[in-house]
């Protein structure tokens, strides 16, 4: 038995499909592959921003007087936090939109945002404790933002797991969306609750802000670099999911056709 070669012109699965007329199909393979130029540009911009940010952080920014070198985690740490918050919040709102008016695109985008948000959350949950060990003398404190990040990450992970565990059905999708919607008010209340619990997290943006110009530049470079990188990752995953949806539609079309033929 030879290994089946999968190419656009032969279908290993359905003999019926292989026997399909070729005339209009031969053209289809010659359709030039559409390169998503905007996405590549986005990726390039994010890479450029991140590279410049890395260089700026290493070469231009001064060491923090109190924290020393360890303060340099700050730039990518806060950037990742922004990316995570943006991803998870918009995932929640998109899920609400999908619940109100089902839309494949909203669903795919919400799912991709959720996944990218979790990636950045994991980054924060690693870089945070490392920094905290230097700054506060311990890896973990039950401090508002740490607790919130942990719990929100767990919620997002469970929504992703739920999608993976439920059958690939409309119900699974709506259930996942409902969970994601529930996450938003829950996170807000978690935030309030743990805030009253007491905390010591530095309030950089609300407080005095960054005094040093080089630090400010490095900070915004990292923030925009990571945000655009998150956008590029989300777009990649989104296209993945859209392709999956298209594939499913084709399969549905084919099995509907076979069903009709069997009936006839």
């Amino acid at each position: 038995m030879t290994t089946p070669t999968i190419s656009p012109t032969t279908s290993p699965e359905s003999p019926e499909l292989a026997a399909a007329p070729r005339a209009p199909v031969a053209m289809a393979t010659r359709v030039p592959v559409r390169t998503p130029a905007a996405l590549l540009v986005l990726l390039g911009v994010s890479l450029a921003l991140i590279e410049v940010a890395l260089w700026w952080i290493a070469a231009r920014t001064p060491s923090d007087i109190v924290l020393g070198l360890s303060q340099k985690i700050f730039y990518f740490h806060v950037g990742s936090a922004f990316a995570m918050l943006l991803c998870l919040t918009s995932a929640s709102f998109l899920s609400l939109a999908d619940l109100l008016r089902p839309d494949d695109r909203a669903d795919a985008l919400a799912q991709s945002l959720l996944e990218v948000g979790v990636i950045f959350a994991l980054c924060i949950l690693t870089s945070g404790p490392l920094w905290a060990r230097k700054a506060w003398g311990m890896y973990w404190t039950w401090e508002p933002r740490l607790t919130l990040t942990l719990l929100v990450t767990l919620l997002a992970v469970s929504v992703i797991a739920l999608r993976a565990m439920s059958a690939d059905s409309g119900t699974g999708r709506r259930v996942g969306a409902a969970m994601a919607v529930m996450g938003a008010p829950a996170s807000y209340l978690i935030h309030v609750a743990v805030k009253w619990w007491g905390g010591t997290h530095p309030q950089v943006i609300q407080g005095g802000g960054i005094q040093n110009a080089d630090m400010r530049i490095a900070f915004w470079l990292a923030v925009f670099g990571l945000l655009t990188f998150a956008a590029a990752l989300t777009a990649t995953r989104y296209r993945d999911l859209r392709l999956k949806q298209r594939g499913r539609a084709i399969r549905l079309n084919l099995s509907a056709h076979q069903l009709r033929q069997r009936r006839a």
Partner: peptide
């Protein structure tokens, strides 16, 4: 209708009722 719901239920429920 979800598989492994015994595991998933606490995973969803506990963070939500944390407040």
């Amino acid at each position: 209708h979800v598989r492994l719901r015994e595991v998933l239920l606490p995973l969803v429920l506990y963070p939500t009722v944390a407040p």
